[in-house]
């Protein structure tokens, strides 16, 4: 009887150790591993570009913080939203719904995976510095992605770099050799 009990306890000890090992792996991965980025979590917050941008004098870079100086334009975090939305901003009845959704939203409600393959170099900041406005590529009236994803190809880049499009804007012709944008 005693021996059986001892056996059982030893078995239990091993089970506990196994559990400990597996658990520690998962714990470490949870703590140290890279978080999985959702492709695009749209819809959690009812966002409308038309109510933000020009209409209230807001620059794209206010939310897409990298668009003027970095390679990536970046999507805003919830903190960026809250910078303004901490206060009730309008009389609009929708604002209450928004507040409750915002309160529940993730810290990073939006994420955007670049469609750019890794042999292509594209730098938002360089284009902004050259005087290209966001709307030149992304469209006015906030029809997003005029040049995004499948609508965009190397020809669109090259045409502008050669000075064929946007003549009225008087951009300086830009580099067209392969290694300017490819690696």
């Amino acid at each position: 009887m005693r021996r059986e009990k001892e056996k059982k306890s030893r078995l239990f000890k091993w089970a506990a150790i196994c559990f400990a090992v597996v658990f520690s792996f998962f714990l470490a991965d949870f703590l140290m591993g890279e978080p999985r980025v959702p492709e695009r979590a749209v819809g959690s917050i009812p966002f409308d570009h038309a109510l933000h941008g020009d209409s209230i004098g807001l620059d794209c870079a206010a939310c897409h913080t990298g668009s003027r100086a970095s390679a990536n334009a970046f999507m805003p975090s919830k903190a960026d939203c809250m910078d303004c939305h901490r206060l009730p901003l309008t009389e609009n009845p929708g604002i209450e719904t928004l507040d409750s959704v915002l309160a529940k939203a993730d810290d990073r409600p939006w994420s955007h995976k670049r469609h750019l393959p890794d042999h292509v170099v594209f730098h938002h900041g360089v284009h902004a510095a050259a005087g290209v406005a966001c709307a030149d590529c992304h469209g006015r009236g906030y029809m997003q992605n005029r040049y995004g994803a499948e609508l965009f190809n190397m020809q669109s880049c090259l045409k502008c770099h050669r000075g064929e499009t946007f003549k009225e804007k008087g951009f300086k012709p830009a580099a067209t050799y392969c290694a300017a944008c490819h690696r």
Binding site: E6, S9, F12, A16, F23, L27
Partner: peptide, 23 residues
């Protein structure tokens, strides 16, 4: 149950150490 308090604390610290090492 075969696990007493001592055993339990032992395995808890094992978890902590393993996690730390792995991290």
């Amino acid at each position: 149950m075969g696990m007493d308090r001592r055993e339990f604390i032992k395995s808890c610290s094992l978890v902590a150490v393993m996690g730390l090492l792995f991290g």
